[in-house]
Design a protein around this nucleic acid. Structure first.
Lengths: 141, 141
DNA sequence: TTAAGGTAGATGCAAACGCATAGAACCCAG
DNA sequence: CTGGGTTCTATGCGTTTGCATCTACCTTAA
C-alpha cells in the first residue's frame, strides 16, 4: 500500500463521514444535498453557466443533471434559456427565489461545515485547501 | 467565507474530479465503483463485518446497502450469515470469488490512484492523510 | 416471566440514477 | 452550400436509491 493510496483512502473516508453528518443535519428543507450543490455552484457564478460546465462541478451523470435542472426549473429555483450564441447549449442561472433558497440553506450549512472542520488548526486548513486544490486542478491525463 | 469553508469546498471538488476520472477508467468490469467500495472494505477486515459497520464506511443509506449486499450475495461475491451471537444482525465477508474480483479490480485501480496523486510530494501525501484522518476520526457532536 | 423500549436489517414504493441513444445545432472540408 | 463528423442536451428504459415502515431480536426492569 503506497502513501498515495493511503492518502486517497483517508480522503474518501473523511468525505463519507462528513457528508453523512451534514446530510443528517436538519437544514435542507425542500432541497436535497445534491440539489443544493447545484444551487450553490450557480450562486458562485454571476454569469450564466452551461450545463456541461455545471456538470464538471457536480458528481452526477449528464442525463441525471439534465433532469435535476428540469426539476429545479419546474420548481422555480433555476432559470434556463437556450444560449443565443450556441443554440445547442443552455444558459443556467438562479432565479431570485433560487438565490434566496440557496442563501437560507447555505447559512446554517456553512456553520456546520465550520464546526466540523474546527478540529483542524488554521495551518492545517490552509494545507488541506492547497493540497486538494492541487489535486483537482491537475486535469490532464 | 471562512478558511474552513474554502477547505471543505476544495476537498469536495477534488473528490468529485478524481471520482469522475476513476469512474471513467476502464477497470470496473462487472462491478460498479460503489460495489467495489463494499468489496474493498470487506477485503480489509479479516473478521466478518456487521451491516451497520459496513454502512459507516460506505456513502449509502442503510436500505440501499442492504439491497446492494443482497445482489452481491446473489452474484456469489459476498457471504452473509446471521450472527450467532446477535440473531438480528448479520456477518458479512468476501467469498473466494469476491476476494478474487476485488484483487483483480483493485490492482489497476490502485495504480490509477497512485498516478492521480503523483502531483503531490511525499510530504503533501502524508499531510493529506493526517489531516483527513483527523477529520474522519472526530466522531462526536 | 413478561411487557416496553431499543436496535439490526429487510421491504414497499415512488423518485432519481446511469447507460445507451436520439435529436438538434455547430463546424469544416470539398 | 452541402454532407460527414462532432458537440451539447434531452429522452427511453431498466436499475438503484432514499424514505418510511416493518419484523425480528435483544435488553431492561417490574
Amino acid at each position: 500500500m503506497t502513501r498515495a493510496n493511503e492518502a486517497w483512502e483517508s480522503l474518501m473516508r473523511a468525505y463519507a463521514v462528513l457528508m453523512k453528518r451534514f446530510n443528517a443535519e436538519d437544514v435542507w428543507g425542500e432541497v436535497t444535498m445534491r440539489e443544493y450543490d447545484v444551487l450553490y455552484t450557480l450562486s458562485k457564478c454571476d454569469s450564466p453557466l452551461r450545463m456541461s460546465e455545471l456538470n464538471r462541478h457536480v458528481l452526477l451523470s449528464q442525463p441525471a443533471l439534465s433532469r435535476m435542472v428540469d426539476r429545479l426549473v419546474d420548481r422555480g429555483l433555476v432559470h434556463r434559456c437556450t444560449d443565443p450564441g450556441d443554440r445547442r447549449g443552455v444558459r443556467l442561472s438562479l432565479t431570485p427565489e433560487g438565490r434566496e433558497v440557496q442563501r437560507e440553506i447555505g447559512r446554517p450549512h456553512a456553520r456546520s461545515v465550520a464546526r466540523a472542520l474546527n478540529v483542524l488548526t488554521p495551518e492545517e486548513l490552509d494545507q488541506l485547501a492547497a493540497i486538494t486544490g492541487k489535486l483537482a486542478g491537475n486535469e490532464e491525463q
